[in-house]
């Protein structure tokens, strides 16, 4: 999703306040004359194949080597930050209220639904540890991991960056994110930890030492951090 475009969605024209609009035919408007695919929030969408994702990941790897992961993460961060502003506008327009007045879990589900419709996978947010300053997000069917298959290491740096960028803007506090379990490691779904840099550094260190997602969750919940 890159630019905004003015193509009226016929369903939206008729039912502008319809919230249940995430089915394929409701959410996207295809204009064969203009060659555009515009979504409910007037973002222009591009269809890409799995080859595009492979090209992006391998092309970056070839250009910048080991920095490819960090580059994808930074791209994700910028995307998440920009999307937070975009979301704030369309949320207010759709629900006639500021996003900060909304139920938090409802707000997050509403933020992620366009991503689900666009094929980025379904998610589940675990905010049980929010008061301790961290949270977990599960992604089912990550577009990146599904494309790359079982490569034995985490690959969803773009998602990690997206969550870091979005949540940083949402809570107005610098947050980071790390993928602690990935479909590309042979797991059934991807798991991300969002929190302050100290916790993300600790999780990265434990992962290097061979800890799995469950170990990391346990250590964080007991308040363990790197000395």
């Amino acid at each position: 999703m890159v630019t905004l475009i003015n193509t009226p969605n016929p369903v939206k024209l008729k039912h502008p306040k319809k919230h249940d609009h995430y089915g394929f035919r409701d959410f996207f408007t295809f204009d064969p004359d203009k060659g555009t695919i515009v979504d409910w929030n007037e973002g222009q969408n591009l269809l890409t194949t799995e080859d595009f994702i492979i090209g992006l990941v391998e092309g970056l790897q070839e250009e910048v080597g080991d920095a490819a992961a960090a580059t994808m993460y930074v791209i994700g961060c910028e995307w998440g930050q920009k999307d937070a502003f975009f979301f704030e506008k369309w949320f207010e327009k759709e629900f006639d209220r500021n996003m900060r007045q909304a139920n938090l879990l409802f707000l997050l589900e509403t933020w992620w639904w366009p991503f689900t419709s666009q094929g980025w996978g379904r998610w589940e947010v675990d905010m049980g540890d929010r008061k301790q300053g961290f949270m977990f997000i599960n992604i089912f069917d990550s577009a990146v991991a599904r494309t790359l298959g079982d490569v034995g290491k985490p690959v969803c740096f773009l998602y990690a960056g997206l969550f870091a960028g979005f949540f940083t803007e949402l809570v107005r506090k610098q947050l980071s994110c790390i993928e602690i379990q990935c479909y590309s490691m042979g797991e059934t779904y991807c798991k991300f930890l969002v929190g302050g840099q100290d916790r993300i550094d600790a999780a990265a260190f434990w992962m290097n030492e061979g800890a799995n997602a469950r170990d990391i969750e346990k250590r964080l919940r007991t308040g363990e951090l790197l000395r």
Partner: peptide, 10 residues
């Protein structure tokens, strides 16, 4: 699919 996530949120 959408409505179950909204009901869960509340």
């Amino acid at each position: 699919l959408w409505f179950q996530t909204i009901l869960h949120a509340f």
